[in-house]
């Protein structure tokens, strides 16, 4: 475990440019949202909004941090499976899922540290007022929900990757799925702004816990409300997804045919 974690970090650090450049995507994403919503809040349309402008900036800042924290590429297993690249892992005493999980954790820790530094510089440079008053309890519950969010994201990606493979067009399907998932999990627009009872329904889906709920902890101080229900729902999804992943993984490895060589 530890060795997988450390080696992955070492590997990533040997590609520092790639690391920094891949982080520019969420950073610019945040900037775009910042100016977009900033412009909107300057008009009269913003008067009926559920968020203040500071809350909105906080939401997008946290969403962009989450984007970095939970973005895994466990779905890549589909390509490796399809192209017969799993021989090496299958012949060693390692678990396909655990191996990827530890590598992802390592990768995300590293990326997060770098991203926080970059975001901090940006926020300081633009004098954006976000993160009003953060209490310890907010921080703790944010960490807990981020871990759950990471796990949900990891296994969701893993499963959709493998499902996409069944349809044969891995890349296209994965791209569309990831857009939909980002959308309904509130990465682009907070679910609170969606019409009607959508938020109430979505809270039972795993997507709700990817971006929206953890980001809301800071934005609306959600912590004042009961935290037990969302915690249980999120935990349920983690377990469900783990079981599904294991099942699918086992089924598929029966059909693995490597490639000629």
């Amino acid at each position: 475990m530890i060795s997988i974690f450390l080696l992955e970090g070492k590997k990533l650090l040997s590609y520092k440019f790639q690391l920094v450049f891949s982080l520019l995507h969420p950073l610019f994403g945040f900037l775009v949202q910042y100016y977009l919503w900033g412009a909107l809040y300057a008009t009269q349309y913003a008067s009926g909004m559920s968020y203040s402008d500071d809350q909105m900036f906080t939401y997008y800042a946290v969403a962009s941090i989450l984007f970095v924290m939970i973005k895994t590429n466990s779905g890549m297993i589909a390509n490796e499976f399809k192209n017969g690249l799993l021989d090496n892992e299958l012949v060693r005493p390692i678990n396909l899922i655990k191996y990827r999980l530890w590598r992802s954790i390592s990768e995300r820790c590293l990326y997060t540290v770098f991203y926080l530094a970059m975001l901090f510089l940006l926020v300081a440079a633009l004098k954006i007022s976000a993160f009003g008053d953060i209490s310890l309890i907010h921080l703790v519950s944010f960490v807990v929900f981020t871990i759950l969010s990471f796990l949900i994201s990891f296994f969701l990606d893993f499963i959709t990757g493998l499902l996409a493979m069944a349809i044969d067009e891995v890349w296209a399907v994965q791209a569309i799925l990831s857009f939909i998932v980002n959308f309904i999990s509130g990465y682009y627009i907070p679910l609170l702004l969606f019409p009607g009872h959508i938020e109430a329904i979505f809270q039972f889906t795993p997507f709700y816990y990817l971006f929206y709920f953890p980001a809301q902890i800071f934005t609306l101080s959600r912590i004042d409300q009961s935290i037990m229900k969302p915690l249980l729902i999120a935990l349920f999804w983690v377990f469900a997804l783990v079981i599904m992943s294991n099942g699918i993984c086992k089924r598929l490895s029966n059909g693995y045919s490597s490639y000629a060589g």
Binding site: I2, S3, I4, L7, K10, K11, S14, Y15, L85, D87, N88, V91, R92, P93, I94, G261
Partner: peptide, 26 residues
């Protein structure tokens, strides 16, 4: 297993790091 046409090692790491990794998983 050694397959001449398929690498069993992680291309991004040095041979030594690969060996250490194998040491720990085995």
């Amino acid at each position: 297993l050694v397959a001449g046409n398929k690498s069993q090692l992680n291309p991004d790491l040095s041979a030594w790091d690969n060996f250490r990794f194998l040491k720990s998983i085995y």
